[in-house]
Amino acid sequence: MSALRKSSPLAVTGKYLALAFYLTFALFPLYWLAKIAVTPDKLIFSEGTAMVPSSFTFENFRTVLIATDFLSYFKNSLIVSLGTAAITTCVAAAAGYAFSRFDFRGKRLVIALMLITQMFPLLMIIAPIYKIVAAVGLLNSLTSLIIVYTAFNVPFATFLMQSFFDGIPKDLEEAGMIDGCTRFEALRKIILPLTLPGLGATLGFIFTAAWSELLFALMLINSNDTMTFPVGLLTFVSKFSVDWGQMMAAGVLALVPSCLFFIFIQRYLVQGLTSGAVKG
């Protein structure tokens, strides 16, 4: 905790052992995923539990990319996740800004409603949503997924954005308004550029969440053309029930975008929570 405290060699060793444990626990499953993906088919079972395969191949990746619908799933997921992230961030930024800067009648009610949405089982609304989406003829469309995901993610994203806005002094947009901006201009020209890390973190967070959502996608999508990644990969499980290598290769490919995003944003997440959420 404190830089001043003299640590005993035992404590230091313990600390590094603990770190090594966490790192191994976090990374080993991912390593295993990658390992099987690059193991040639004929070695998968004979060397099934070997730490390092005796030879490597990228054949699995090639097959997945060329011979399966992988690219279509990937594209669908990308559309859904990017769409969700972009729309959610805009909507949440506006709402978070209102929470941060205005006192208005009904504010507490809206905040309470948003908190409630974080409390109840989302599965509770899976049936009504299915019926509503079916009624408006949006089953098997990516649009319905984007709308549903956006609504699910807006409350958390709003609280996140609010904490970022709270970190920016109110004086700045007031100075802007005195300098001749409307409030909206001040928001656009002064506050938004300063919130970019926050916007980035929110975007990445929502992207990751949307990228991994499974159950609603499973319910609302059943045509192969509009399947997102998680749904598609689950169909892989039945289709290629024996072809571990290809499944793992597809898994590795699915992992790349969300991990990239996450590594980029995780620093801002801690920062954002430190400045905002903790002080409440």
Binding site: P169, E174, A175, G176
Partner: peptide, 10 residues
């Protein structure tokens, strides 16, 4: 207006 915090655009 000149603000106490100066409110310069960072």
């Amino acid at each position: 207006m000149v603000f106490q915090s100066y409110a310069l655009y960072p």
